[in-house]
Design a protein around this nucleic acid. Structure first.
Length: 821
RNA sequence: GCGGGCGUGGCGGAAUUGGCAAACGCGCCAGACUUAGGAUCUGGUGGAGCGAUCCCUGCAGGUUCAAAUCCUGUCGCCCGCACCA
């Protein structure tokens, strides 16, 4: 055996061996409990970063642990390979996105393999491969047939830098999620997925996910943004209906004006041919020029103008003026709002500025008749100035009025969501083409499966024009209609890459199926994903889209489960000098270099040891060396143990004190590591516990008595415990112990309860909660015996300090507290 | 503004159910071995004090025999949402 630990030699040796043996490929096996473990697949940028290393190290610990515990573990990897960087590279360097992406994938795959993660590479998939995007397109066609994919003209988010539209979820603080450019509004005809149909289920089913962090569930809840209210029909003097949405229909007697979004179609109708027409047009123009961020900012100065028309309040028959403002959003509710200055702070500010009447209709119980100085928004109040509803509480009034509104057919109870339909069109090349053609005679036609995939043409030019580069292809545009066979033109937009990543976990269950996206059988065996691991930045986007897809597939009868991910772990970021590692900040540490210098086992160990998985992790070069030293220390320990020999002997019936101590440390560690991985997902403490056991074994090695058998037990168990964290060094040492098979195919060790038992323990003696002493007592004493023992001690009166003991609290195994006065 | 989370030594962190604060590691100090040490091993390492002791989990209160942990208030940091009617 080598006297020194040589990580590089060991690691490449075993990586080749595992691959050769196919150690990590899995098949359906109904004899075993399945466990689907998935890490969010990466975009193939070409280079692995520390965030990846962290993500996959966490996943690999679990995958190896559950495998050793007899589960049939599916642990696949693939590539989220469509997207803008490839296309930008094409524009800048003239390389075609396809080979560019394939090169990156090849590089990253090699880097990933040097980490020694237990992936089943036979299931590798890439979203940019025709064999994959064929099925993405097929899914689109199914959505289309179910009415879940539709085209409409709408004001959409436009990123001028990426030259494409964005989904609402991809707009962060009014800027593009990718490139931070200020997002503009554009009127365009675009494809949408009707995710709003699933809003309520996406919300309700969050309750089915106890294994998700509350933080993520809350974020999704807020994003869906359910609110209950009434849609109430105001009318213009001409009799046109202008419905408003309100959650405070109880305040309808307090309406003193009505506000429309400037884009509201009724605005032009009401002002056409009047003196207001021109000024209104100017106001509309001004508002439309506001950036997205300004328009939705609460700092925006509220501005508005009267448009010369009046609306009738259907409950009071009162006539109120109609205004337009910059603070009402056309996209939410009905784009029309009733102005109740007394009970809505925005309306209050607006009324103060423009001199609208402020009419109180809810008052606190002890109201002294005083004037309002701000809006009274509380629900804790009594109705006033509200006709027959006076005297009711807000809650009672809400019910009574809603019933009356429905009875009079002037309003209905409705639920509104903040969630909008998902805009999936992208005016870019490097994505899955939308499988739609426009026939000269039959119009819009969806392509059948035998016309899929719609392949990306290669004869395109890459120019940042704001139009899909597909339009530059001489061969792509013209095709035939699937219905009549006549001339048709293809849809030129591609799909948002988030579409591709919304079902990849299903494809892994049946990765190369040429007939179907995935077979029902495979999906039902493996799904749902038992443990999903990735960055919290996907809390809304990817994680909600994937849930949406899963529910649609469930409804289509393709899979039984209707939630994709049972347990979710959102890992923290990897920081250097206090901020996220990034190229622009120049604070990156390259995994490649770390692996070359210390080995993958050290890199993995450090990243798992430095912080609990959910928390951010500060990179520390010195601590990395510490982990490397720890592995060397382990190596030397095995050199010493193997030199001593006798490791294969059976445990003797009689054990000495030293034997018992080291066995207690070992079995305590087995218990702790098992719990930390399986239950607490707290790998840093699992590793520290292994370190403690190593220290205990070193102490034991210094004791004089013969110890082969006890050492042998420890030598084997320690490798099993460490195997999920540092798979290569443990495999090497496992073989040095004389084993022929892989350490990763072994059964996870059980701990011996009897070995944990102590004869005596140290407890604390407290007086009024302050430590006075620590004493050694027999481990099995109960409350009364402990109390008796402490009272009988010679120091007892000294501890009391001349005061009287009122009572004594004894906690077995912990302490005795004497309360004195 | 609303919602969620976090505040513990020089640093990363531990304390699982309210029960001995600081496990484990990094760093630092001293020593051993050594031609040498950025290897390895041993010991020490929250603060004050010569000392017995006392103090210490952002801050101020409270509950309790007992609080890092529970409650109230407050300060600071991070994340998400934000004119959603």
């Amino acid at each position: 055996m080598e006297r020194k630990y040589d990580a590089t030699a060991i690691e490449s040796k075993w990586q080749k061996d595992w691959e050769y043996k196919g150690l990590h490929s899995v098949k359906k096996d109904t004899d075993k409990e399945k466990f689907y473990l998935l890490e969010m697949f990466p975009y193939p940028s070409g280079k692995l970063h520390m965030g990846h290393v962290r993500n996959y190290s966490i996943g690999d610990v679990m995958a190896r642990y559950f495998t050793m515990n007899g589960k049939n573990v599916l642990h696949p990897m693939g590539w989220d390979a469509f997207g803008l960087p490839a296309e930008n590279a094409a524009i800048q360097h003239g390389v075609h996105p396809d080979p560019w992406t394939r090169d990156n994938i090849n590089n990253m795959r090699e880097q990933l393999k040097t980490l020694g993660i237990s992936y089943d590479w036979s299931r590798e998939e890439g979203t940019c491969l025709p064999e994959y995007y064929k099925w993405t397109q097929w899914i689109f066609t199914q959505f289309y047939k179910r009415g879940l994919a539709y085209k409409k003209k709408a004001a959409v988010n436009w990123c001028p830098s990426c030259s494409t539209v964005l989904a609402n979820e991809q707009v962060v603080d009014g800027c593009c999620e990718r490139c931070d450019s200020l997002v503009e509004k554009k009127d365009l005809e675009q494809w949408f997925f009707r995710i709003t149909d699933y809003a309520q289920r996406l919300l309700d089913d969050l309750d089915k996910l106890p294994g998700w962090p509350d933080k993520v569930k809350t974020m999704q809840e807020n994003w869906i943004g359910r609110s209950e209210g009434v849609q109430l029909e105001f009318r213009t003097e001409a009799g046109d209906a202008v419905p408003v949405f309100t959650t405070r229909h109880d305040t309808v007697f307090g309406v003193t004006y009505m506000v429309l979004a400037p884009e509201h179609p009724m605005v032009n109708k009401l002002t056409a041919g009047t003196e207001y027409e021109q000024p209104v047009k100017e106001f509309q123009k001004k508002v439309s020029q506001l950036s997205f961020i300004d328009r939705t900012s609460s700092d925006l100065e509220k501005e508005g103008m009267f448009i010369g028309a009046y609306a009738i309040n259907p409950m009071t028959e009162e006539k109120v003026p109609i205004w337009i403002t910059n603070y009402v959003l056309y996209e939410y509710g009905t784009g029309a709002v009733m102005g109740v200055p007394a009970h809505d702070q925005r309306d209050y500010d607006f009324a103060k500025k423009y001199g609208h009447q402020i009419k109180r209709v809810v008052a606190p119980k002890d109201w002294d008749g005083s004037e309002l100085t701000e809006a009274f928004e509380s629900y804790d109040g009594i109705m006033v100035n509200s006709g027959k509803y006076n005297g009711l509480s807000v809650t009672e009034a809400k019910v009574a009025m809603a019933e009356d509104m429905e009875a009079k057919q002037i309003g209905k109870r409705v639920v509104n969501y903040r969630l909008r339909d998902w805009l999936i069109s992208r005016q870019r090349y490097w994505g899955a083409p939308i499988p739609i053609v426009y026939c000269d005679t039959c119009g819009e036609q969806v392509l059948p499966l035998d016309r899929l995939p719609v392949l990306l043409p290669t004869d395109v030019e890459f120019r940042p024009t704001g139009e899909s580069p597909l339009k530059t292809s001489p061969t792509f545009r013209d095709t035939t209609c699937p219905k009549c066979g006549g001339h048709a033109v293809r849809e030129m937009d591609t799909m948002d890459t988030f579409v591709c990543s919304s079902w990849y976990f299903l494809r892994f269950t049946d990765a190369h199926n040429p007939q179907e996206a995935f077979s029902k059988d495979a999906a039902n065996y493996w799904m749902p994903v038992d443990q999903y691991i990735g960055g919290v930045e996907h809390a809304i986007l990817h994680l909600m889209y994937a849930r949406f897809f899963m529910k649609v597939f469930h409804d289509m009868g393709l899979v039984e489960a209707d939630e994709p991910f049972t347990n979710l772990l959102t890992q923290g970021m990897v920081l250097k000098d206090g901020s996220k590692m990034s190229k622009s900040k120049g604070n990156t540490v390259s995994p490649e270099e770390i692996i070359a210098r210390f080995g993958a086992d050290t890199a993995r160990l450090f990243i798992l040891f430095a912080a609990p998985p959910e928390r951010d992790l500060e990179w520390n070069d010195a601590a990395v060396e510490g982990c490397s030293r720890f592995l060397s220390r382990i190596w030397r320990m095995y050199v010493q143990m193997i030199d001593m020999g006798g490791l294969d002997e059976a445990l003797p019936a009689e054990l000495n004190e030293a034997d018992k101590n080291v066995r207690r440390a070992l079995h305590g560690t087995i218990k702790k590591v098992s719990e930390d991985i399986a239950v607490r997902r707290q790998f840093n403490t699992a590793i520290s516990s292994i370190m403690e056991a190593v220290n205990a074994i070193y102490d034991y090695l210094d004791t004089p008595a013969p110890k082969g058998a006890v050492l042998g037990e420890a030598a084997r168990a320690m490798l099993l415990l460490l195997a999920p964290f540092a798979p290569h060094i443990t495999e090497e040492l496992w073989h040095e112990l004389g084993n022929q098979d892989s350490v990763h195919e072994q059964q996870w060790p059980d701990y011996d309860e009897a070995a944990l038992v102590r004869d005596s323990i140290e407890i604390a003696v407290q007086v009024n909660g302050k430590i006075r002493s620590r004493i050694e007592i027999p481990a099995n004493l109960g409350r009364e015996e402990m109390e008796k023992l402490v009272k009988g001690l010679p120091q007892y009166t000294e501890w009391l300090g001349g005061k009287a003991a009122i009572k004594t609290i004894a906690i077995p195994g912990k302490l005795v507290n004497i309360v004195v006065k």
